[in-house]
Amino acid sequence: MEIKKTALAGTLESSDIQITLSPATSGGIQIDLDSAVASQYGDQIKDVITTTLQGFQIENALVKAVDKGALDCVIKARTVAVAQRALEQTEPAWEVL
């Protein structure tokens, strides 16, 4: 799926994650992660984001994630929201959920 525009979801409040998704023409899903717990959970966070985006058939994207200690379910929810905004989809993507 082609990303139509840059989108943002989530906040910078504690236990949340703010994700910005923007288009890329190549290079796969590239994630730039800011997190206080990146050394312990960085790979896990990136994995949740990548898997969720792949669920939308997004192949190439630039992702900026600013994590404030979000749990996996929050990361997934924010990724779904940002993907739907970037793809300009209004119907919930049930198969990804």
Binding site: A7, T11, L12, E13, Q18
Partner: peptide, 12 residues
């Protein structure tokens, strides 16, 4: 963080 976050959402 709450202020910056709100401003970023509005800009977006």
């Amino acid at each position: 963080n709450q202020v910056v976050s709100e401003l970023q959402t509005r800009l977006m």
